[in-house]
Every structure is written in C-alpha cells, then in structure tokens.
C-alpha cells in the first residue's frame, strides 16, 4: 500500500464485507467516525489488515480517534509509525 487512495480502497473493502453492500464511496476525506461508517470491530479489522499489508506493528496506543477521523489522518499515522520503526531499527 503506497498512498491514502489505496488505503481508501482497503477501508471500502472492509466496510463492504461487513455490511454486504456499498452505500457510500470512501475517499481520503470521508469522515469515518461521524458518519458512523465504522464500528469498533471494523476499526480493529482495518488496523489488523493495514498491519498485514504494510508489515508494520501499529501500536495499540495509536488506535485513537485523532488517527481515524479520515483516511488521510490514518495514512499520516501509518507513515509516522513506519518512520518510527525505521529510525528505531526493526522492532
């Protein structure tokens, strides 16, 4: 996964799996929390899937509202986690 658009497709995929159909298109600025698009299980699924695809460990402590407001916010958080794990050396 290389950018926020690809992240949007992943989120879309997970929401579609959960609800069986797509009502809304997820774009980088879709408000994920306010629209009620994602519930807690879906959030944890997004985190798990992102970890698998990118091969990072997303710390539990970063799973907070500020990082899930929009796909862009989540992408920024992913980049920050990637940066931190590079500078620390692989953990």
């Amino acid at each position: 996964m290389k950018n926020a658009d690809e992240l949007c497709s992943l989120i879309q995929e997970i929401i579609d799996e959960a609800s069986g159909h797509a009502d809304e298109k997820v774009d980088p600025s879709t408000p994920l929390l306010i629209s009620g698009l994602v519930d807690s299980l879906t959030i944890m699924r997004i985190v798990a899937r992102v970890e698998q695809r990118i091969g990072i460990s997303f710390p539990e402590t970063e799973v907070v509202a500020a990082n899930f407001r929009t796909p862009t916010a989540l992408w920024d958080a992913i980049e920050a986690v990637k940066g931190a794990s590079h500078s620390e050396g692989a953990v």
Binding site: S40, I43, E60, T61, E62, V63, V64, A65
Partner: peptide, 14 residues
C-alpha cells in the same frame, strides 16, 4: 493512563 486517551478499546482487543 495506559497509552493515549481513547485507546481503551484497542487495548481491550489485545
């Protein structure tokens, strides 16, 4: 506070 405010559910998942 364990982790950041709001990360309770993520911690609970673990």
């Amino acid at each position: 506070l364990v982790g950041h405010e709001g990360s309770g559910l993520a911690l609970l998942t673990v």
